[in-house]
Amino acid sequence: MPSETPQAEVGPTGCPHRSGPHSAKGSLEKGSPEDKEAKEPLWIRPDAPSRCTWQLGRPASESPHHHTAPAKSPKILPDILKKIGDTPMVRINKIGKKFGLKCELLAKCEFFNAGGSVKDRISLRMIEDAERDGTLKPGDTIIEPTSGNTGIGLALAAAVRGYRCIIVMPEKMSSEKVDVLRALGAEIVRTPTNARFDSPESHVGVAWRLKNEIPNSHILDQYRNASNPLAHYDTTADEILQQCDGKLDMLVASVGTGGTITGIARKLKEKCPGCRIIGVDPEGSILAEPEELNQTEQTTYEVEGIGYDFIPTVLDRTVVDKWFKSNDEEAFTFARMLIAQEGLLCGGSAGSTVAVAVKAAQELQEGQRCVVILPDSVRNYMTKFLSDRWMLQKGFLKEEDLTEKKPWWWHLRVQELGLSAPLTVLPTITCGHTIEILREKGFDQAPVVDEAGVILGMVTLGNMLSSLLAGKVQPSDQVGKVIYKQFKQIRLTDTLGRLSHILEMDHFALVV
């Protein structure tokens, strides 16, 4: 994948999101292997301009796509893939009243899908469409860049269908997702969380590099694949309309690839034109409109599966009536509230959605109805927002919020430890010299600072030695090549209790 991002070429006709291997024109390309080798690009942008032909009021008969309808489940399912879809609609009884809503608040519980998330729908649909058009064949390999849930859905379907599955996901995604993927037989590649989507090191860039190296491999490409919004247009939206008897006044959905909100909203605009569509985008993402909503100094966020630093091709923002931004604290607070007060075992993005819903639905009156999409299960986040310690460490809970008995030293300040200034190293000294210094002084790690004293990161003896043994660096290389740029900081005025929580999850903390 090139470091400079080429513009994806656009073909003359058809839909841009065809499933299957992508040609340089962004659509299915038939021909000899030699032709494909000559024409197939190194990668295709996940934010390529959409060429979708959908228009409100256009006859369904003019759609270029294969459409399906929700099917009634048999008493005995032939395999677990038949437990994807037909998820329950559940009334939220307490939270709406707590925040003064007059309307009825309903939750579409997508964590009841077989793999635990709304992404099971698009995973199965992308595979079925690729099999139907002859792209996927027995023994082929599926590769997908994902925040985890699409990966789980694909790995689940691949396990049943017999495909090899490789999932490329950023490091910030939970260990629970990784464990589930491994249990399903998927191979996992992790990428830096802070890598831009168009960087060769991003999950998108690495996935395309693997595709170019592995024979008979395919990126189904949830960011561009029409099967993504079509899955929701054909099934999720129809289920909502049936469950609500066609009567709903507002739908609120958090947005990642945009397939969920695009597919549902398009069908609702056709069948229930008075329904307002509300999009939820986390602070630090750029999906919301108008652009002024996205202006923030924050560039990272903890909530998973929603928000991006690019506009995915499948996201149709014209069908969203209003956007709201959400933050991590309210997302996790509301997710825990949904679990504790409503018994809905949902993930953090569901918290984002409901946090926005109780604001947006203030305009609705008694007798009206708001539906929220709860995308995934708490299963993926047992060591994250479900953990009091994690919430404390991230600053989303305060010590006084917890009532468990603490040891005698818990409320003492870090400054009472009488710490001395640490050994520091410059980023320009060599790895070999740094190892000598650390061994001589008896230290395992040291902060790396520039000549102005600005902290650049941390270097550890173990990481340097393993990097040297693996051949990633040489003793003569500058130590700046092996620094940890993500590390926890703590102030002298913070409590030892807070430091204790940090050290339970990290090997060190830097006192500043």
Rank of each mutant, 00 (worst) to 15 (best):
H66G: 10
C52N: 00
H232N: 04
G96W: 11
A155I: 01
R121F: 02
I214M: 09
G96E: 10
L42D: 11
L106H: 10
A107M: 02
L106R: 10
R182W: 06
E9G: 11
P59V: 04
S73Y: 13
A157H: 02
K269Q: 08
A231H: 14
W43C: 12
K108Q: 03
C52E: 00
R182P: 02
E187H: 10
R121M: 00
P64E: 09
N212I: 06
G162C: 03
S202M: 01
K39D: 12
E34M: 09
S32K: 07
E62K: 14
I152G: 00
L241K: 06
S32C: 03
I188S: 03
R45T: 07
S63K: 06
S227Q: 10
R266H: 08
N225M: 00
T260E: 00
P70E: 10
A159G: 05
K94W: 10
K97V: 07
H232I: 01
K247R: 13
Q222N: 02
L105S: 04
D35S: 09
D140A: 07
P215R: 06
N149W: 01
F99E: 10
T146N: 05
I214L: 07
T53K: 10
L184V: 03
V189H: 07
I84C: 09
T262Q: 00
L248R: 02
R58S: 05
R196E: 04
L181T: 00
A130V: 07
A107D: 08
A183H: 08
P273W: 12
S199T: 10
P33V: 10
E128Q: 11
F111Q: 00
P138K: 09
I188G: 00
A155V: 02
A226Y: 09
G134V: 04
A195L: 03
G139I: 05
A130S: 09
G85I: 03
P12H: 11
G256R: 00
W43D: 03
P78L: 14
D140W: 06
D120M: 07
W54I: 06
D86A: 11
L184Q: 06
E128I: 13
H65C: 00
P41F: 05
D79N: 11
P192Q: 06
I240D: 01
G100Q: 12
K94M: 14
L268T: 04
R276D: 04
N113Y: 01
F197N: 06
P78V: 06
G256M: 00
L154G: 00
